Simulated assay, not measured.
Amino acid sequence: MILVAIIACEIGFWLAIIAGLVARYVFRRPRLGAMLLLAAPVIDLILLVLVGVDLLGGRTASWHHGLAALYIGISVAYGHRMVAWADAKFAEWFRGAEPRPARYGWDYARACWKDVPRTLLAVAIAAAVLGGLILLVGAPERTSELLRFFPILGVVIGIDVLWALGYTVWPKKAPAVAA
């Protein structure tokens, strides 16, 4: 059930963003667009409540519950950036705004390193959600699977650091210009 809720919340997150941007750029209703964009964090709250209710209802935690915690952490830490990216694309498509310039070399590596603290925040939020669920349920035999999710959070951080390090050592090259 929680896996379905995660998928539904991810779809709802993007539908809220797209609806908000369509209202803003296509229908020229910026206040309606802002209200629809505010639905995205509400969706995260709904998922958190669903996970809590599921576990408090007697269900034994599974990896789905850990995934929900990670989803919430990523959504909170990266949500604003995802909305800004989508907003820039809509402005480009519907208002003729200049596209964001592509990043290469040290500029791209610096952007990757700026993501590391954001990923740390996402993992910290996910860890707090996991810890909160463990404390809320108060039944170690039913929440032991959540404890197994903490090393996965470490892997997420490790991958992000390796990603940034990789682009620092081997910078992303600009495409060759056709003659």
Rank of each mutant, 00 (worst) to 15 (best):
Leu55Glu: 00
Leu55Asn: 02
Leu56Ala: 07
Gly58Thr: 08
Gly58Met: 07
Gly58Cys: 08
Arg59Met: 11
Thr60Gln: 14
Thr60Val: 15
Thr60Tyr: 12
Ser62Ile: 00
Ser62Ala: 14
Ser62Met: 09
His64Pro: 00
His65Ile: 06
His65Ala: 14
His65Asn: 14
Gly66Phe: 05
Gly66Tyr: 06
Gly66Thr: 02
Leu67Asp: 01
Leu67Val: 12
Ala69Met: 08
Tyr71Lys: 09
Tyr71Pro: 00
Tyr71Thr: 12
Ile72Met: 12
Ile72Pro: 06
Gly73Pro: 04
Ser75Ile: 00
Ser75Asp: 14
Val76Ser: 02
Tyr78Lys: 03
Tyr78Gly: 04
Gly79Arg: 08
His80Asp: 09
Arg81Ser: 15
Met82Trp: 09
Met82Ile: 04
Val83Met: 13
Trp85Phe: 13
Trp85Thr: 10
Trp85Tyr: 10
Ala86Thr: 08
Ala86Ile: 00
Ala86Glu: 06
Asp87Trp: 04
Ala88Glu: 03
Ala88Trp: 01
Lys89Ser: 11
Phe90Cys: 02
Phe90Thr: 01
Phe90Gly: 00
Ala91Glu: 06
Glu92Trp: 09
Trp93Lys: 13
Phe94Lys: 10
Phe94Val: 02
Arg95Leu: 12
Arg95Gln: 14
Ala97Asp: 15
Ala97Ser: 15
Ala97Thr: 06
Ala97Leu: 10
Ala97Met: 11
Glu98Ile: 01
Glu98Lys: 13
Pro99Gln: 07
Arg100Ile: 00
Arg100Ser: 11
Pro101Glu: 09
Ala102Cys: 01
Ala102Glu: 08
Arg103Ser: 11
Tyr104Ser: 03
Tyr104Trp: 10
Gly105Lys: 04
Gly105Gln: 07
Gly105Met: 11
Gly105Phe: 05
Gly105Thr: 10
Trp106Pro: 00
Trp106Asn: 06
Trp106Ala: 14
Arg110Ile: 11
Ala111Pro: 01
Cys112Phe: 00
Cys112Glu: 15
Cys112Thr: 07
Trp113Arg: 11
Lys114Asn: 09
Val116His: 02
Val116Leu: 02
Pro117Asp: 05
Pro117Glu: 05
Thr119Gly: 01
Thr119Asp: 07
Leu120Asn: 03
Leu120Ser: 05
Leu120Gln: 03
Leu120His: 07
Ala122Tyr: 07
Ala122Val: 05
Ala124Thr: 07
Ala127Pro: 06
